[in-house]
Design a protein around this nucleic acid. Structure first.
Ligand SMILES: [Mn+2]
Ligand SMILES: [Mn+2]
Ligand SMILES: [Zn+2]
Ligand SMILES: [Zn+2]
Lengths: 145, 145
DNA sequence: CAATGAAATAGGAATAATTCCTAATTAGGA
DNA sequence: TCCTAATTAGGAATTATTCCTATTTCATTG
């Protein structure tokens, strides 16, 4: 299930493949399959505990941080201060549309690459590493008018 | 100092102009003048206390929330989970470049309006309210290579 | 200019998310 | 199989933000 390249990468950089980590990957993978709704740490823990009851929340946090550092996972920070995670799909990059009412997330394929390029060119003393772009609003169920 | 239109707006929508709120506005205004480095609630409190020692942190938070709701203040949520605030300058809109090392913030004038327009057109059942766009990296002092 | 009442405040408690700590366990190379 | 550095569980600590409530105050009205 879990992409072989992910396991290979972890091995290459010397990140041990513990059962906890495998289960977390599994949960993220299932999530990605089921529409790509990102999950928070609490939710990851709950889901992992169905198959691996002893996992601690701290391990979930640590693991998600490790995976994020390794580029395997995307850590999203939304403005309701919820942090959510999603598996990075190889060679794919996207942003999100978030409902301020229910928190539902949709993916949008567009990325302001042109702007990032321009900024990289004009702010040469600044080394760009990443960017976040999120659109907020109300989904069909949550909008009032 | 504080833009007259701001005071007028608050009056119009029935938000009382207490000394606490005036001092907070003053601090945000001074910040905007001094380069536009956004501030967090703690910092706002410290600065306000120099002139109004009894203000409580809760009042700062409440007031910043009120101002944000009224469109007078911008609430920024960065991915290190710091929340910072800046005065909205009438008729102006910008985004930020944030250093992952020291947290220093620079403003960038570009905005991915075209993408937002496209999203608005293709996701018609979604009512767009706002957006956030932030570029992260390392400033001249913090970059290593 | 005094009375009035809803709005706002101070200060401390409560909450929630995340990180820290440490003794015990374990993955995986030798 | 052994060994050791990496990882973990579980609970404590920390941090940022929100909640609570008795008291104060703004600003409208008479
Ligand atoms: Mn996504
Ligand atoms: Mn700014
Ligand atoms: Zn919704
Ligand atoms: Zn820096």
């Amino acid at each position: 299930m879990i992409p072989g390249e992910v396991l290979k990468h972890l091995k290459r950089v010397g990140v041990r493949l513990t059962p906890q980590r495998q289960e977390i990957l599994q949960v993220l993978w299932e999530r990605a399959q089921a529409g790509g709704q990102p999950v928070n740490a609490e939710e990851v823990m709950k889901r992992v505990r169905k198959r691996y009851p002893a996992i601690s929340l701290d391990t979930v946090y640590r693991t998600l941080a490790t995976f994020t550092r390794e580029g395997i996972v995307n850590e999203l920070q939304f403005k309701d201060q919820s942090r959510r995670y999603e598996l990075v799909i190889q060679g794919e990059h996207h942003h999100h549309l978030v409902c301020l009412g229910c928190g539902y997330v949709r993916e949008i394929a567009y990325c302001p690459e042109d702007i990032i390029k321009r900024v990289r060119e004009s702010y040469t003393d600044f080394k760009i590493e990443e960017h976040s772009f999120t659109i907020y609003g109300y989904c069909a169920e949550c909008r009032e008018d």
